[in-house]
């Protein structure tokens, strides 16, 4: 039996598609392009649920340590998704709390290939470090990350406004460099 969810996005793509779950695995198909993304059941390792801009994101961790993100799920669909993942793949849908306080201070946490910015222990956003084109330490306490022109890259067209740079102020960065926490997921 296959369960289908409509109006789901793959990654940051502007294209909507259909997301299907069955015992053999999961799949996404773009409505306009017909592009298909498939996730085999045997490769599915974990699943997370977090609020993003386009409603809720389902992210699936795979056995090759990559992950796929699907946006556009509704709050009400959580229980249905959780049940499907449990029944078909024996995994638990883990909820990650997101931050909406509106503060610009917090903790930068390295999680594998992502840099997560946490406000009051909740995720404000995550940045994929493999998209960083250039990083720069300006002075003792400032770190800047510049992002590649994704719109013109193989990653395809992006929806919305494009962030090209973010600068962090890291007081005492030189003296208290923290170990990266690659095992946090």
């Amino acid at each position: 039996m296959t369960t289908q969810f409509d109006k789901i996005y793959h990654g940051l793509s502007p294209e909507v598609g259909k997301f299907r779950v069955a015992s053999s695995g999961m799949g996404w198909k773009g409505i306009d392009s017909g592009n298909v993304v498939t996730l085999e059941a045997s490769k599915v390792k974990w699943a997370q649920w977090i609020r993003v801009a386009r409603n809720f994101q389902l992210r699936i961790g795979l056995s090759d340590h990559t992950k796929e993100r699907f946006d556009g799920f509704l709050r009400e669909e959580h229980d249905k998704i959780a049940q499907l993942l449990k029944n078909h793949f024996g995994i638990t849908l883990e909820t990650q709390e997101a931050a909406f306080k509106g503060w610009n201070w917090g903790v930068a946490d390295f999680r594998g290939q992502d840099l997560a910015f946490l406000v009051s222990d909740r995720t404000a956003f995550e940045l994929p470090l493999d998209n960083v084109a250039n990083s720069n330490i300006a002075g003792r306490t400032e770190v800047s990350l510049e992002f590649a022109n994704l719109a013109g890259s193989s990653k395809g067209k992006l929806a919305g406004d494009e962030m090209v740079e973010i600068r962090f102020h890291v007081p005492g960065a030189a003296s208290k460099a923290k170990d990266s926490d690659a095992g946090s997921q």
């Binding site: 610009n104 201070w105 917090g106 903790v107 930068a108 910015f117 400032e142 406004d161 494009e162 962030m163 090209v164 740079e165 973010i166 600068r167 962090f168 102020h169 890291v170 007081p171 005492g172």
Partner: peptide, 17 residues
């Protein structure tokens, strides 16, 4: 004043369009 001056702060962001 700052609640936690020793935290990591976002100093600036830039977008293009």
């Amino acid at each position: 004043p700052f609640e936690d001056p020793d935290a990591t702060f976002i100093r600036s962001v830039s977008y293009r369009s």
